[in-house]
Design a protein around this nucleic acid. Sequence first.
RNA 1: GCCGCCGUAGCUCAGUGGUAGAGCGCACCCUUGGUAAGGGUGAGGCCGGGAGUUCAAUUCUCCCCGGCGGCACCA
Length: 665
Amino acid sequence: MSEKNSAQNPVNLCLPDGSVRTFDGPVTGTTLAGDIGPGLLKAALCIKVNGEAWDLSRPIEEDSDVAIVTSRDKEDALDILRHDCAHIMAEAVQELFPGTQVTIGPNIEDGFFYDFARDKPFTEDDLEVIEKRMHEIVARDEEIIREVWDRDDAIAYFKKIGEIYKAEIIADLPEGEPITVYRQGEWLDLCRGPHLPSTGKLGSAFKLMKVAGAYWRGDSKNEMLTRIYGTCWTDKKELKAYLHRLEEAEKRDHRKLGREMDLFHLQEEAQGSVFWHPQGYTVWLQLEKYIRTRLRGAGYDEIKTPQLLDSKLWEKSGHWSKFRENMFVVPDEVPSTDEDAPVLSGDAKLMALKPMNCPAHVQVFRQGIKSYRDLPIRFAEFGCCHRNEAHGALHGLMRVRQMTQDDGHVFCREDQVTEESVAFCDLLASVYEDLGFPEFQVKLATRPDVRAGTDEIWDKAEAALEAALNARGIAFEYAPGEGAFYGPKLEFHLSDAIGRTWQCGTLQSDFVLPERLDASYIAEDGSRQRPVMLHRAILGTLERFIGIMIEHFAGRMPLWLAPTQVVITPITSEADDYAKAVFEKLEAAGLRAELDLRNESIKYKVRDHSHKKVPAILVVGGREAENNTVSIRRLGSNNQSVVDLSEAIDALVTEGTMPDGTASA
RNA sequence: GCCGCCGUAGCUCAGUGGUAGAGCGCACCCUUGGUAAGGGUGAGGCCGGGAGUUCAAUUCUCCCCGGCGGCACCA
């Protein structure tokens, strides 16, 4: 691209409808829009030039495919609006709080944030003031002007005005990258752009959402900045819809539903460990039973290994050096009962609660001599692990310190890795489908900087996982450097009610641990070989997965998982005997039924059980007793239907049957 | 762990420098009501913990602990 293009050279711009407009020389998006029509000029936000978003004020000097972006082009419009909104927020902040430095302010899903450096962090109260000033800046309709600066001048300038973070960002920009600065009114900021032609175009469909701390460059060793999150839309209606969506999502919060449905609780004496109540543990047991069945079907043998293991084993496995800060360490000694003496001497042998099951599984593998004919060996364990998670990380069922994994380890030959990985991906997809999650995201986490094993081994391990994904046509993205120290991993992510994603399933190929813990098998030629170890989990942990399911279903579990599947209740006490008889039949049919003989109105009882998310309510009165029928009302419906009792039971039993994995075949 | 906000009855939340209130829930009584709240009465609180200021602290200050929202970490 030449800046020196002569003005005489005509420029041909090809519009999305295929028509071409010719101009005598360089032309801006504004001119083009005005040329097409005043309505478009008014609506124009920016212009796409050969697929790249440009400012309307930037001259286009060469023949190009162009498209004027208006609020109708949702994605492009939101991109530019949100980014402008971040700039306007930064301008407001610096007007109101002089001395505050700007750092970075990218778009994120549904909005944007901007990180500021300031001695005193912002509070929620500041947001109102900042937001008010932002509306004023929009009303001022300041022209936004793009300038290309010399790199050294830019660094010097930002240093001079005390913006040391900006100066640092510029210094880190790759050589040759043009340094662009945008002015709006008195204010300016380093920015790649593009931006709206003026602040007035932003409109008023934005809102500042929350403040938070965030580390500079995302590194906890760096200073903490203060971050302001905002949301921004093309119009007020969209903003309102978004806020409504957030409210609806909050209603699904598993912590709230967990309390309302009496599923579990947490308390400070056991931070991060769950007290499962009868209703919640029923869900747990059902889920566990289902997974157990699926694992058996996939050739796994279930085992159970110790909680407390000698630190010597963790030293060998590498956990002691790489994972110890997350482990609960327990001294192996009789505590002193002397009131004046310290409880522990401090020099006892150390044990640790297992944070992972893998080293224990290797111990089981190591018993006896294994032949290549034995492989693959697939061990499964509902392994209860403890991890000393940071206090700030704990979050309901989603981040806990005591977790039960649907863990498993496949010991196989190198030539079996891809095959076993494919089988696992199939199993996982089928399980997710059965559980109501046909969609999930996959990441391939590759070698981290600090790792064990040679590059050749890592090449092999990463290629094996990728081959499995490709074999099944599973879309994925790379997560460079995020693999475990012993091997790369596939991460399977699900989303919760408010859009946060959580890693559930995982598949990790490991060439290191078998070596460290000396696992071997006898190969066909009689030589001793190392097996490859595949670490895998489908649900990840039962705790997190149940949390996600609660939110996914908004508490309305499928019948086979629902803690109470059906409630039977009489209209008046005259029907108590019939209700009891129905209840007994339901129980005999294997349904999790509850009998509600409370002296309350039927309205009250229906409401109560609906709140508790009971999937089916059977109401009986004189008419039903006489005809041997029930009036059945399903959760979420305001209607009810009267059916024969036996028919109702059959239907519930059928629907309440655990999936067997054939549904998604 | 870091930054900010918050902590009053089982739950949701009012409130005050002079040791507390509502609704729901719970208990009892009345009510026997055909599908999302029938009525009455009553019991429930070391106002998160500790220190300080004060004649007096649930209220003001400080320190802990915990919760929430992020960050970092992560299944």
